[in-house]
Amino acid sequence: MFQFKLVLLGDSSVGKSSIVYRFVKNSFDEFRESTIGAAFLSQTIKVKESDDGEETVIKFEIWDTAGQERYKSLAPMYYRNANAALVVYDVTQQDSLVKAQSWVNELKNKVGDDDLVICLVGNKVDLCDEDAEDNKRAVGTEEARSYANEQNLLFYEVSAKTGLNVQQIFQSIGEKLFETKSEEIAAAKNRQIGSSNDHVNVQLQRASTNDPTSCCF
């Protein structure tokens, strides 16, 4: 089993907690209270190994952070050791995309790890009906997608309310992380064959925050 750390970032009330609940509990609560501080949850998914069709279990340890400005100074502690980041915006709020972009910049500047998988997620597409008069969409799909491509991010438009695409985000992040890790393992195995030592400990997990010797920062 692989274990990955994932963090959700984004402006307040874009639906970060709702996405997590859809993923973890497959449920939705219209009147969710704002997150205070941060919530820690975990959920597992299965990914197929391409060559032999066997399934591997991936466990996500998820930090669902509060979007409120006052908790911003705590964010580094949550994303510091993350393997993946979901940067969420609200497709009906143009400002929230701006905020998401600033999170992406912060991640790229501060984490400095090319293996960090960032996924840009536009939530609340259930409020958008392209044909209806009261279409609430304020951020065009193409606008966001081209930004995501430019920055080399994964991109999804989802609805936590209907569940549309929510599972897919985590699935594709899982697969991407698994792919990277498999390559690392393969490389480690090759090294292992080359060396006389039979046992090499492969560090699958990134150092956790409780490790005082953590060298990431």
Binding site: V24, E33, G37, A38, A39, Y71
Partner: peptide, 19 residues
């Protein structure tokens, strides 16, 4: 007050880290 007003709807397995 905070616990019983804000967190009563929490999932059982959820853990909070609150300043």
């Amino acid at each position: 007050c905070l616990i019983y007003h804000q967190f009563q709807n929490l999932q059982n397995q959820q853990e909070m880290w609150v300043p």
